[in-house]
């Protein structure tokens, strides 16, 4: 049983109780994904599994045999930041930094979801093709809590990248 994380293959843990989050943080020592609540209530642990964002604290590692996972470490590094990471730095889209990897993983998938035309609670009619508005971004990012209150800056950072991609 193996799982691919940021392009590297790893053996899954033997103890089925180990969550995907604890597997990555405690076993693989990749601590970019954070544990803020351990119950799917904060989004700090967000990872992309087969391209979709999920709360890695609410899934067991053993349930991911053969899956491909991207964590913040797979999105960019200090020396080679992804556009969203650069935009977060520029717009001060963080304060303590603890929710930040989750925000960025989430935003990475979120922009793809808008591009794919997925509606959200902020979309006036589910049959509409969603537009890239602040309210759409705010609704879609609401699964990522930030207690420092960097939300306004986070949305600024995301909007800049999204509008850059759309242009």
């Amino acid at each position: 049983m193996t799982i691919e994380i940021n392009g590297e293959s790893h053996e899954l843990p033997r103890d089925p109780r180990v969550t995907l989050l604890d597997f990555v943080r405690e076993h693989l020592k990749m601590t970019g994904a954070k544990k803020g609540c351990d119950h799917g209530q904060c989004g700090a642990c967000t990872m992309l599994v087969n391209g979709q964002r999920i709360n890695s604290c609410l899934t067991l590692a053993v349930m991911h045999d053969g899956d491909s996972v991207t964590t913040i470490e797979g999105i960019g590094s200090p020396a080679a930041m992804a556009p969203l990471q650069e935009a977060f730095v520029k717009h001060d889209g963080y304060q303590c930094g603890y929710c930040t990897p989750g925000q960025i993983c989430s935003a990475t998938a979120m922009l793809q979801e808008i591009a794919a035309g997925w509606p959200s609670d902020a979309t006036a009619d589910p049959t509409d093709t969603p537009k890239l508005t602040r309210e759409e971004v705010q609704e879609r990012m609401s699964g990522n809590l930030c207690r420092c209150g960097a939300y306004a800056n986070i949305v600024d950072a995301i909007m800049e990248v999204a509008e850059g991609e759309a242009a």
Partner: peptide
């Protein structure tokens, strides 16, 4: 069934709805 889409989208978060 837009009612169903709306109800689902009003619940939880995208991360949770994906699972």
């Amino acid at each position: 069934y837009p009612l169903l889409a709306r109800a689902i989208l009003a619940g939880a978060t995208q991360q949770l709805r994906n699972k």
